[in-house]
Design a protein around this nucleic acid. Structure first.
Lengths: 149, 149
DNA sequence: CTTGACCCTATAGTGACTATAAGGTTTTAA
DNA sequence: TTAAAACCTTATAGTCACTATAGGGTCAAG
């Protein structure tokens, strides 16, 4: 299987496949006589595994870990659980802040329900008010807060 | 006001302030005799405005736009509304996929409620099953799907 | 007079790709 | 048969919004 076929089979761009190889998530494949990469079914499954993990937003470094776990089948399963749990914690934190964000933007948008001149735009007004240190619909009494990672 | 004071006043790191200047979100400030940046109240408010927008996860390019709008007060307010709306659409899309993600990870974690050997770990099992193209708790019948941006 | 806290610029690193340049090979169509 | 297109190769740079580092200059306190 050439890289393009693998790409078509998995929905992963050839560039990305080569990137995974550079990042040591995929082993360097065999080469055809002309130097083209030659993949087998095993490689396809590994790539599918990676993509499945990525669909769960698991970072590449963690996927590398999971692959290591796969290769040593007598290890402790607790490591895997911890890894997935950590991911869940990350996702929940992000979810929290996204929910707040949606609220804030929805509120903000209500401030400008029809066309005004810029100077009378409720949205811009709110944004500027916040910049003056006033309480705002978005962030209450303390408008300027450090952004969480 | 020196850059450190501005940083303390806004909770933005000096590095980040200099970065905003390079990115033309903040005008180059006056300089003291020794070459140190010298900020006034206006600059502080502009920085607060930027941070407030960033707290709403608005990209720097869009903030540049908003600043342009601020500087021409006779423009059309509809542009602002469109910009905020676009941001809301982005946030909602991301929120959707984060919700799904939480579900999937929660389900996945249920597969391994106690300590097993690696080979019997339900989590790893599910992940590998998906890689084989089987239906999975995470993604149903079509486990490998392109990731949305 | 030296230590430490600031400030300056320029450059590189982060994560997970994505795009480009500059070339080689293979397949397809005229 | 030949020429174009569609593929492959490597290496390098760009994306976003910072963050960190290197290598220096300035300034007040002890």
């Amino acid at each position: 299987m050439r890289i393009g076929e693998l790409a078509a089979a998995t929905g992963v761009e050839p560039e990305t496949i080569r990137y995974y190889e550079r990042e040591a998530l995929l082993a360097p494949p065999q080469r055809q006589a002309n130097g083209y990469r030659d993949y087998g079914k095993q490689q396809l499954e590994r790539l599918a595994f990676i993509r499945h993990c990525r669909a769960l937003d698991i970072p590449l470094a963690d996927i590398r870990q999971l692959i290591n776990f796969l290769d040593q089948p007598d290890g402790d399963c607790g490591d895997i659980d911890r890894l997935i749990h950590a991911q869940l914690v990350r996702v929940r934190a992000r979810l929290q802040s996204m929910r707040a964000l949606e609220q804030q933007l929805t509120e903000l948008r209500k401030r400008c329900d029809s066309r005004h001149a810029m100077t009378e735009c409720g949205i811009l007004h709110e944004l500027v008010a916040a910049a003056h240190g006033e309480a705002c619909i978005c962030h209450g009494e303390f408008p300027i807060t450090p952004i969480k990672p």
